[in-house]
């Protein structure tokens, strides 16, 4: 577009508008990084907590969850660094990012304020985490994330109604289905792939 004052016919104007709008797309590289980071971290923490409690008899096995702090730091550092390099922010990206930030703050409040009253937190976390996962799946138009959200809610029921052993495995299973499988599928599409923005 070299001619700075080039005037157009009506048809040309419409073509310019539709061409430009179709070029704005959402990058998925950030999404796969966070899914894989949190998928592996929560999988490792929940499974080791369960195994340490069940087979090593360690009553305070929940200490393993302090590893989440490292995950929060890594997640924010990566998100901030990538965000500074982003050359475009679509409304889809904005909804995606703020939904997960809302989930993060809800989780912080949940863990700081309610831990004694709630007892086992896995089922509540699965119920809450299903919401941003579903919204992300809708924004990215990515079905494995939507199915992952449905699995989170089913596994929240399993965590509630299952016995000691079954309940303890609900969270690691949810991480495989809801975070790790969609995360690897997204990564497989490659850093060049994009989805139409919302």
């Amino acid at each position: 577009m070299e001619n700075e004052e080039k005037l157009m016919t009506g048809e040309e104007s419409l073509r310019v508008i539709s061409d430009m709008i179709s070029k704005t797309r959402v990058s998925v590289t950030q999404a796969s990084f966070h899914l894989l980071l949190w998928g592996w971290l929560i999988f490792a923490c929940s499974l080791s907590e369960f195994l340490l409690w069940k087979y090593a008899g360690w009553a305070d096995s929940w200490y393993v969850w302090f590893a989440v702090i490292a995950g929060v730091v890594a997640s924010f550092a990566y998100g901030f660094a990538k965000g500074k390099r982003e050359r475009i922010f679509t409304y889809g990206t904005k909804i995606y990012v703020w939904t997960w930030i809302a989930f993060f703050w809800a989780s912080v409040i949940f863990f700081i304020v309610f831990p004694l009253e709630t007892g086992d937190v896995a089922k509540y976390m699965l119920l809450m985490a299903g919401i941003p996962l579903l919204i992300s799946g809708v924004v990215l138009n990515f079905r494995p994330m939507m199915l992952g959200a449905a699995a989170f809610w089913l596994l929240a029921l399993v965590a509630h109604f299952g016995g000691d052993t079954v309940s303890g495995l609900a969270m690691p299973a949810a991480m495989i289905i809801g975070y790790l499988i969609p995360g690897y599928l997204l990564r497989k599409r490659g850093s060049h792939d994009t989805f139409q923005g919302a």
């Binding site: 577009m1 157009m8 104007s13 310019v16 508008i17 061409d19 430009m20 709008i21 070029k23 704005t24 475009i88 922010f89 679509t90 409304y91 990206t93 904005k94 923005g197």
Partner: peptide, 12 residues
């Protein structure tokens, strides 16, 4: 028009 068409469909 091209600039505006891009900016109408993104946040920034």
């Amino acid at each position: 028009l091209a600039i505006m068409s891009i900016l109408i469909s993104v946040d920034s």
